[in-house]
Design a protein around this nucleic acid. Structure first.
Length: 275
DNA sequence: GGTAGGCGACGAGACGTGGT
DNA sequence: ACCACGTCTCGTCGCCTACC
């Protein structure tokens, strides 16, 4: 039995049991690519160690790969495809948790200002959409995928509640928003209606100028442009420049990251007043 | 309470495509 | 040629849960 075939069977089994298993499937595919189309019995411990080591320092990804391979070899051992696991016996300690970037108030002010001014005829995503979207991310701590998945029906501006459906861990939750963020979203909803965008409750809340759903790619590339035009950069040697996802974390919610709901009052509205 | 296993979502970059 | 955007891949983060 060759390695890719066993991987295929394992992934199919896990997915048939209800796991999405997307990342694991990708890791196992990369493992196959690194080792080659060989018999599973021919995979050497050194090849596994090389794949796990990758390039660069040990990050959480080392463990991610190790966990994916552990499950895979448990399957292979159980089915009798191999007699021994080639995985290393010693596992490095988990590295320090990643530290998100906390945007200083002044940078937030520049960021939201730049967002409102973003206008390029060839860009599907308009500044008038991007600004309320970023304010929503910052104000509620939503994930970008959650914000983009919001439909008109999910945004209840009267009750000031958002319905986040089937997000991480297949859960649906309600997110209250404060009156000021609600006002921002109400203005956007009003403009959206005035511009003649489709108003079916199942339509996305955030739309492009051509009435299509805003994608993650559009927001991320726009965010990079904003970051550059607002002159925001990390110079502390961190692996990443400030990320879209960092808007979820800020000084007001260091104690309970990603759990604060509503208006994230102080910094946000100070920024809004001055932007 | 701390740690590790498990897994969904996100970040970033490469690359291809289509419009201007 | 250039730009916006979609897709793919590798790498990473964060949360839940089980176990010690």
């Amino acid at each position: 039995m060759n390695l890719p075939q066993v991987v295929h069977d394992y992934v199919a089994l896990k997915q048939s049991m209800g796991s999405r298993f997307r990342t694991e499937a990708a890791i196992l595919k990369a493992f196959c690519k690194a080792v080659g189309d060989v018999a599973i019995t021919d995979v050497e411990p050194q090849q596994v160690a090389r794949y796990l080591a990758g390039s660069g320092p040990v990050t959480r990804y080392w463990h991610r790969k190790y966990e994916a391979l552990t499950g895979f070899y448990r399957f292979a051992l159980g089915r009798g495809y191999v007699a021994l696991s080639p995985l290393p016996k010693t596992v490095p300690q988990r590295p320090e948790p990643f530290r998100p970037y906390i945007f200083p108030e002044e940078e937030l002010r520049r960021l939201f200002k730049a967002a409102g001014e973003l206008e390029a005829p060839r860009m599907a995503l308009q500044g008038a959409t991007l600004r309320p979207l970023l304010l929503l991310l910052y104000g509620t701590g939503l994930r970008i995928s959650e914000a983009l998945a919001l439909t008109l029906a999910d945004v209840d501006l009267g009750a000031q509640v958002l319905t986040i459906r089937e997000s991480k861990f297949y859960k649906t939750r309600l997110v209250p928003i404060g009156p000021r963020l609600a006002a921002v979203l109400r203005t956007y909803a009003h403009d959206r209606h005035r511009q003649g965008h489709a108003n079916d409750p199942a339509n996305p809340f955030f739309v492009t100028r051509t009435d299509t759903a805003v994608t993650r790619g559009m927001v991320e590339s726009a965010f990079v442009r904003l970051r550059n035009s607002a002159d925001i950069a990390r110079e502390d040697g961190a692996r990443y420049q400030p990320r879209l996802h960092d808007l979820r974390h800020h000084a007001d919610n260091r104690i309970m990251p990603s759990r604060a709901a509503g208006d994230r009052p102080a910094a946000l509205w100070r920024c809004l007043r001055s932007a």
